[in-house]
Computed example of a mutant assay.
Amino acid sequence: MLNALEVITTVVVGVMVGVEFSVAFIMNRILDALPEDSGQLGHAHGGRMLGALMPFWYIGSLVLSAIWAAAERHHHDAGLVTAAVGLLIVSVVMSILLLVPINNRNKTWTPDNRPADWKQQLNRWNRYHYIRVAVIIAAFTLLAAALA
Rank of each mutant, 00 (worst) to 15 (best):
N3H: 10
P115L: 12
L147W: 12
V13Q: 05
G60N: 02
D37N: 14
L122V: 09
R124C: 04
E20K: 00
L34Q: 14
M54C: 03
A134V: 08
R127P: 00
A71I: 02
F56V: 07
Y58R: 15
L142A: 13
S61M: 06
A83I: 03
T108P: 01
A78W: 11
L31C: 00
Y128F: 15
V135T: 15
A148D: 08
R132T: 03
M94F: 11
A33H: 09
R73N: 11
T10N: 10
V92L: 15
E72C: 09
H129R: 01
L87K: 12
P35W: 07
L147M: 14
K107V: 05
I30R: 08
L64N: 02
L122C: 06
L50H: 03
R127S: 12
E20W: 01
L143W: 08
E6Y: 00
A4D: 03
L143A: 10
D37Y: 08
A144H: 07
A138Y: 04
D77M: 11
A144Q: 06
A69P: 01
T141Q: 04
N106P: 00
A24C: 11
A146S: 14
A4H: 01
G42L: 02
L88I: 08
N126S: 12
P115M: 12
R48Q: 09
P115R: 10
F25Y: 14
A146D: 06
V100P: 00
P35I: 05
F140W: 14
V12Q: 08
L97D: 04
H45V: 04
E72H: 13
V85D: 06
S91M: 05
V12P: 01
L50Y: 12
G18S: 08
P115I: 10
S61T: 07
S61W: 04
N123A: 15
G42H: 04
A83R: 04
L88D: 05
G51L: 03
A78P: 03
P55H: 05
D32I: 01
P111N: 11
L64V: 02
I136P: 06
A139C: 10
A44E: 06
S38D: 04
T9Q: 01
T82G: 10
E36R: 14
W57I: 15
A78D: 07
F140T: 05
A69H: 03
V93F: 10
A83N: 07
S22P: 00
S65Y: 06
K107N: 10
G39N: 03
K119R: 15
G60V: 01
A116L: 11
R124S: 11
W109H: 12
R29G: 05
A52F: 10
I8H: 00
R127T: 13
T10K: 07
A4Y: 02
G39L: 02
Q121D: 11
L80Y: 10
